[in-house]
Simulated scan of single mutants.
Amino acid sequence: MSFFPAKDPAPGDAFACDALAQLIVPRTSDIGGLAVRRALPSARRRMVGPFVFLDEMGPAEFKAGEGLDVRPHPHIGLATVTYLFEGEIFHRDSLGTAQAIRPGAVNWMSAGSGIAHSERTAPDHRHGHEPLHGLQCWVALPAADEESAPAFMHHDADALPIEVAEGKTVRIVAGTLFGRTSPLKTASDTLFADVMLEAGAKLPLDAAAEERAVYLVSGEVDIAGDRFAAGRLLVFRPGDRITVTATMAARLAILGGAAMDGPRYIWWNFVSSRKDRIEAAKADWKAGRFATVPGESEVIPLPE
């Protein structure tokens, strides 16, 4: 998805839990009738593991004839990760990929040296009452892979491992959790999981991942006596074993992995370890040197 202008996330309320490094409250923007909450990047936290960008889209319900319409736009130096709770998005890219994504599945597009893509609601899903709710993340590529060939991966919901036990249902989208490993191939150590908890259920999180965070989508959780409501990104300190307890039915995303090999610069839809590479990408998009998306005639112009 294109990096639209939005207000920066804000620091959260004070908390007593020593396990938390940051509590981030996303700022909400309305983009064409779609509420979007941005949790990363923030002034206080630029990355969690390789994750440099985290948006929650919706929940929303489109009127008849309406839907998501993100025109073709470029990316470099990152992988986009799209995961839905409700609805459907149709992805097209300059590799010729045409792929619908539905709840529980994952679209992973590695931009590498450069790719363009669009994200839309398909015509047969514009009859009204079409829901949309999900997460879109960007994962920075290691410096050695920033100029790799672009690629696209899709895994259906039934291809991703699920752990069901003691009131929790955990779908492992990327990485390894509870002894289960996702088939998704990532360029660096990456953890991403969708978790549903019944009231009273406990979710233990060990310190295997170097950097870890939880984004609370719905419900409320307790961590060491502090309670946290939906719409919060909880970034944990490294090395501590954490237990998250649902005080009511809750849904959350676990994200993290190995710390990045240095800082990343973000400008619009471009991510790189080098400022000059971003300047080159800006010039390439403006001059029309990116590959085009088949079946698309419009693009999002370079911001001025």
Rank of each mutant, 00 (worst) to 15 (best):
M1L: 13
F4V: 13
A6S: 14
P9I: 04
F15L: 10
C17F: 10
V36F: 00
R37V: 05
A39W: 00
R45F: 10
P50I: 01
F51R: 06
V52N: 01
P59T: 04
G65A: 10
E66D: 15
E66N: 13
L68D: 03
D69N: 14
P72Q: 12
H75P: 11
L78W: 05
A79T: 04
L84H: 11
E86N: 09
G87T: 01
G87D: 03
E88V: 12
H91W: 08
H91T: 09
D93G: 09
A98T: 12
R102Y: 09
V106T: 06
S118I: 03
R120C: 01
T121Y: 02
T121I: 06
E130H: 13
E130M: 15
P131C: 02
G134W: 04
L135Y: 11
L141E: 01
A143K: 05
S148Y: 03
A151P: 03
A151H: 15
H154N: 08
A157L: 01
L160W: 04
V173A: 03
T176H: 00
R180V: 10
L184I: 00
K185S: 13
T186W: 00
T190E: 02
L197F: 06
G200T: 09
L203M: 02
L205Y: 01
D206N: 15
D206C: 09
A213Q: 00
Y215K: 02
S218D: 10
G219W: 06
V221Q: 04
A224P: 10
G225P: 11
D240C: 13
R241Q: 14
R241T: 15
M248W: 06
A253F: 14
I254F: 08
R264L: 00
I266C: 09
W267G: 01
W268N: 04
F270K: 05
S272L: 07
I278A: 02
K282Q: 15
A283Q: 14
A291G: 13
P294H: 03
E296M: 13
L302M: 14
L302R: 10
